[in-house]
Amino acid sequence: MNDQPFDLDLLKAFAAVADCGGFTAAAGRLNSTQSTVSQKVLRLEEQAGHRLLERSHRQVRLTEAGEQLIGYARRMLALDAEVRQLLSGASVAATLRLGLPEDFAAGRTTSTLAAFARRHENVRLEVTSGLSRELRSLYDRGELDIVVVKQRRGTGDAVKQWQESLCWIDSAAHPVLALDPLPLVVFPPRGLYRDDMVAALDASGRRWRVSYTSSSLASIQSAVADGLGISLLPARVVHDRHRTVGPQQGLPMIETMEIALYYRPEAGALVTRLAEDLSALIGDDSRDEV
């Protein structure tokens, strides 16, 4: 790596390729040509001294060095945009990047975020929802300012943690609990609750099979309600088309998860205020702080 400052134009091309997943789409976003974008990324790789992208016919992926750089690249580009706004006489909007699990990114949460935005009109909220492991990875790479994630109890250095109450659910109209093997509706591999379900059933000697897999909470809820299998979900997302089951039906209790709030104390007053609002929201849902 040489000592020259990074060229923002090269960083912009790199970020566009990462966001679009390919050079052709990135060229369209930048109103440029594919070859020009490719040359800019090559020049950035030479300057960084590392290969930043793995290229194939189907897709483009970040290398380990690319994953390390992309967060800094976006922050540098955002800072450049803010400086340009300031010098042009326009009011500068602070950007807060928030990550939420899918089951938090609706309902009372959106009301809380809307109220925060109304109190702070100079703040632009960017909300990303997804699996907790993905959100935590984005936070660790500096691409999110504050995250709410699910994790195993006592496994992280979160600012705050709350116990997550889990329960087994079956269909109210089409129960399947008596089937052998027991059909399971699950999140994808490495998704939360899946390993806990399997370990608990194995320990109890109950035969099981995966009948439905989805990364969407709404899809999981519907699959259970329609009788495709049972699942393990937070108690707060159970609705009237579900039937809660548990030890009385031979299913073990599972109390291994917590909700965790992460943010960097040095991030500033606005992040702290948003964290306080989220803490109040989570605390209102009858969870015990740990």
Rank of each mutant, 00 (worst) to 15 (best):
168 W>I: 06
156 G>R: 14
237 V>E: 13
124 R>Y: 09
282 I>W: 05
69 L>Q: 01
237 V>H: 07
275 A>Q: 09
132 S>H: 10
258 E>H: 07
246 G>T: 06
220 I>Q: 11
276 E>G: 00
235 A>V: 15
175 P>R: 10
165 S>Q: 14
158 A>L: 05
36 T>H: 15
37 V>Q: 02
202 D>C: 13
212 Y>R: 11
70 I>G: 08
57 H>S: 15
79 L>G: 01
240 D>M: 00
75 R>W: 05
189 P>C: 00
246 G>R: 01
204 S>H: 11
283 G>E: 12
247 P>N: 00
114 A>R: 09
67 E>Q: 13
37 V>W: 08
159 V>K: 02
283 G>N: 12
26 A>C: 09
53 L>I: 03
287 R>W: 04
87 L>V: 13
141 R>N: 10
71 G>W: 03
93 A>Y: 05
240 D>E: 14
133 R>W: 04
142 G>E: 04
76 M>R: 15
146 I>Y: 04
233 L>G: 09
28 G>V: 01
244 T>A: 11
197 M>E: 06
67 E>M: 07
172 A>Y: 15
136 R>I: 06
283 G>S: 14
262 Y>V: 07
242 H>D: 13
111 S>F: 06
241 R>I: 00
88 S>Q: 05
236 R>A: 13
187 F>A: 12
49 G>H: 01
259 I>N: 01
203 A>E: 14
108 R>C: 04
52 L>Y: 04
105 A>F: 13
114 A>M: 03
273 R>G: 00
184 L>P: 10
153 R>P: 00
217 L>E: 15
123 V>Y: 02
162 W>E: 05
220 I>V: 15
209 R>Y: 04
138 L>N: 03
208 W>A: 07
112 T>Y: 04
257 M>N: 11
8 L>P: 14
280 A>D: 02
141 R>E: 11
40 K>Y: 05
9 D>A: 15
73 A>R: 00
278 L>Q: 10
123 V>W: 06
251 L>C: 09
259 I>R: 01
198 V>E: 13
61 R>D: 05
191 G>T: 02
91 S>V: 04
257 M>W: 03
261 L>Q: 06
202 D>N: 12
150 K>V: 14
259 I>C: 09
236 R>M: 10
127 V>Y: 09
142 G>K: 09
53 L>W: 01
4 Q>Y: 10
62 L>W: 02
43 R>L: 10
140 D>I: 13
67 E>G: 08
49 G>P: 06
124 R>N: 10
191 G>N: 08
122 N>E: 12
20 C>Y: 01
243 R>W: 02
151 Q>P: 00
155 T>K: 12
276 E>R: 07
91 S>Y: 02
67 E>W: 02
3 D>I: 11
33 T>H: 14
154 G>C: 03
126 E>M: 08
26 A>D: 04
188 P>T: 09
217 L>C: 14
250 G>L: 08
57 H>P: 00
219 S>Q: 14
189 P>S: 12
168 W>V: 03
216 S>Q: 14
232 L>S: 04
242 H>L: 12
251 L>Y: 08
113 L>Y: 00
237 V>Y: 05
77 L>C: 14
228 L>S: 06
45 E>K: 09
12 K>F: 02
239 H>C: 11
282 I>D: 07
120 H>N: 08
238 V>S: 00
16 A>T: 03
18 A>Y: 08
